[in-house]
Design a protein around this nucleic acid. Sequence first.
DNA 1: CGGCGGCTTGATTCGAGTCAAGAACCGTGG
DNA 2: CCACGGTTCTTGACTCGAATCAAGCCGCCG
Lengths: 250, 250
Amino acid sequence: MTGMLKRSGRQFLGPLREKLRSPGGAIGKEVDAVLNRTKPRIGRGEIIAGPAFSGKQFAVLLEGLACMATRNDNGARQIYAFYYPGDFLALHDFLRPESREHIEIEALSNCSIGTINRDILERAIQRRPMLGQALWQAAMIEARIFRQRLVMARWPALQRVAHLLCEQRARLGAHERVIPLTQIDVADATGLSVVHINRLFQELRQLGVLSKQRTIKVVNKERLQELAAFDPGYLDPGEALSYWDLYIDD
Amino acid sequence: MTGMLKRSGRQFLGPLREKLRSPGGAIGKEVDAVLNRTKPRIGRGEIIAGPAFSGKQFAVLLEGLACMATRNDNGARQIYAFYYPGDFLALHDFLRPESREHIEIEALSNCSIGTINRDILERAIQRRPMLGQALWQAAMIEARIFRQRLVMARWPALQRVAHLLCEQRARLGAHERVIPLTQIDVADATGLSVVHINRLFQELRQLGVLSKQRTIKVVNKERLQELAAFDPGYLDPGEALSYWDLYIDD
DNA sequence: CGGCGGCTTGATTCGAGTCAAGAACCGTGG
DNA sequence: CCACGGTTCTTGACTCGAATCAAGCCGCCG
């Protein structure tokens, strides 16, 4: 479980070593070699990748929290998935850039990313067939995430929200209890209205699961996991949502 | 758009030539060479692949209609995706057979399938790297299908049902107007109750979209597409849901 | 000619949306 | 340091879509 880079106490200063969680083991050096890290910080709410990029460039999230989302005809945002440090972004349009879905990758907190040009990535894949298989796996993991969301879509609202919070906790790192989302974000990810989310949050506060502060802060994770029927093992290391596992040198 | 094999007027008698819709073009012969077609017919309601198979064997659907589904704790079935002739089944657990999700592939009509052993498929991938890339693409298409279902999950019920019917029409073949599903199947795929599905069907019959018979038969596809806000192009050839395109030699 | 799976119908309940308005908070600039 | 504007959060009243429960019906298959 990766977590924010700072959490481990190490700083994001030296070269990255990414280790792909794949049957083949670590191939991160390949990616490391072609990763362009000059990209500056990205502010919350900014679009990291969208139709405008159309498959010419890809990114790896280095710090922060981002999501994949679309906006429907009414302008309502729908969040499909969250991305955490180490995740590969926007792979979905590597093979078929000309999709008519208007998918965007949006920063939910301040982020920093590394980028890779399409042709460079292509060449890397040719040099290292394992990388291709790893990307296949990444796509299958993505499919699994969406399937999981489809399952959640049929749960009662409180459980849906609780489960989302459990996921965030698990992915942000067990020690980080503040979840950097707004109630609006949670609404857009669960498909519930903001008003209803707010009422559920109050219920969670009454139950002693969330703190009474404005920020989303879990103070009783056991109770939360009960409400969510959350199985911590469903994110076990071999199946983590994160395609990449970041290790920082000094 | 593939359709039932019979529709084209050709019979499913001779050798198959599968053509993968991939940037690389036809690699179906590779699959054809390793496909075991001795498997007999499978009856409606039977499980084609599930936990019991655990990644040792994979299948290609040759005839009929199947789905990927799970059952939740109450025994309720949830259908994630439909499979049509030419689709590769159960690829989802090729890389990680030990998933704890109890996904099953179930025949929704009488089906026939061809099978491939895991190790044979693995060797085929090594021989032909393009096949690996094709499977990557297949996984991305699957992810897209699920994403589409997530979008639909927020639509009003009538539109959701109408869209599902449009998809079936498009995939079964434009000339096949009877959709071989039960109202129960539609309920499990849309996440609505059977009772509600029934009422929506009556509404669709009143609107002159469905015939008054017991079978699900579309008699006014234009009206149906309007209700569904269905974009026929969203299944355009390059992006079809079907991984494989079947061609039959007499 | 049962019987069972699927379809139909009605009555009732309830979860969650919508609308509307106000309060708390945050960043920015004077 | 405070005033202002824009988000975000909160609360209340009302509505409505869809679930559930409970029967009864149809039609096919053995």
